[in-house]
């Protein structure tokens, strides 16, 4: 008699990879999905194919969440981000498997990526309560005024995650935005979106408030122009856009004069220690004056 059970004795339960919007995991409102393959071309899963409307919803969620995130004390934001690192570490194996499949790395290579990702996240967590000191100043103006400058988050930043470095690069884009107090709409690597979805699950169980990070999977080409032209998006990180798309998006960003970070000379080396640039591009410097008198 043939064994009626599936190969291996039981059928595994596969995960549905969904979007992460306002702290929830909806499917695309369009009902669409797209196949995601591993590095050798074998089908890994179907990911949600986010629509323009999903992108719009993500911006709404981010805008709603941003003031609360920015208003949290820098110390608190640092702690929340450190908690994310703890949870990343906790899911070490799961991330390593996703990275290995998506990026075609061997076990040790994938392990190294995850370890570096956790460390990178810890590095940025520590920045949350230091960036204002490093980027701020008191300014010696020539007169009876006290004058100081402080950095403030720009608000809602849309980020195109790197296409190749699906976890380390993703963290390298999202974490600095969060450390600086921004809310994020991130478009995951188009062909390697699964680590981003898993990161969503980490964020959902962390103390990052709903809506502060929103993750879209789908076609960068389709989603990015919507975000670049969206008048309620304040900043645009083009890490995952090629030169041609980047030029188009820069043009589209002129509508409300977004702060734009465009990669210089190809995809960044995400293994290199970052500078403060990714944080500082997405802060505004506010300068205040007050008379000094009795």
């Amino acid at each position: 008699m043939p064994d009626p059970r599936p190969p291996g004795g039981r059928l595994s339960v596969q995960k549905t990879y969904k979007l992460f919007l306002a702290g929830a995991f909806p499917r695309s409102e369009s009902g669409r999905s797209y196949p995601v393959s591993d590095a050798r071309g074998a089908l890994l899963a179907h990911a949600a194919l986010a629509s323009r409307k999903d992108a719009r919803d993500a911006v709404v969620a981010a805008r709603r969440a941003q003031p609360g995130w920015a208003a949290a004390s820098a110390y608190n934001r640092g702690q929340v981000l450190y908690r994310v690192a703890e949870l990343l570490e906790d899911r070490h194996a799961q991330f390593a498997e996703a990275v290995a499949a998506g990026e075609g790395l061997d076990g040790a290579g994938a392990e190294a990526v995850v370890a570096e990702t956790v460390d990178r996240w810890v590095w940025y967590a520590g920045w949350a309560d230091k960036i204002a000191q490093v980027a701020g100043s008191s300014n010696p103006v020539a007169g009876p005024w006290f004058n100081f400058s402080v950095p403030e988050p720009v608000g809602v930043v849309a980020a195109l995650a790197p296409q190749r470095s699906s976890l380390l690069g993703l963290a390298g884009v999202v974490a600095p935005l969060l450390a600086a107090g921004n809310a994020v709409v991130v478009v995951a690597s188009e062909e390697r979106p699964l680590p981003a979805v898993t990161l969503s699950e980490v964020l959902a169980t962390s103390d990052v408030p709903p809506g502060v990070v929103n993750v879209l999977t789908g076609r960068t080409r389709e989603l990015a122009p919507v975000l670049a032209a969206h008048r309620d998006v304040d900043g645009l990180d083009l890490a995952g856009a090629g030169p041609e798309l980047a030029a188009e998006l820069e043009r589209a960003s002129a509508g409300n004069l977004k702060r734009v970070l465009t990669p210089r000379g190809g995809e960044e080396d995400w293994w290199a220690m970052p500078s403060t640039r990714r944080m500082l591009t997405f802060v505004e410097t506010k300068t205040a004056w007050h008379p000094v008198g009795v």
């Binding site: 009876p144 005024w145 008379p291 000094v292 008198g293 009795v294």
Partner: peptide, 12 residues
């Protein structure tokens, strides 16, 4: 104490 204040720098 209800009179509007005078800002020293502004007045000068």
């Amino acid at each position: 104490h209800g009179l509007p204040g005078v800002d020293q720098v502004g007045a000068e």
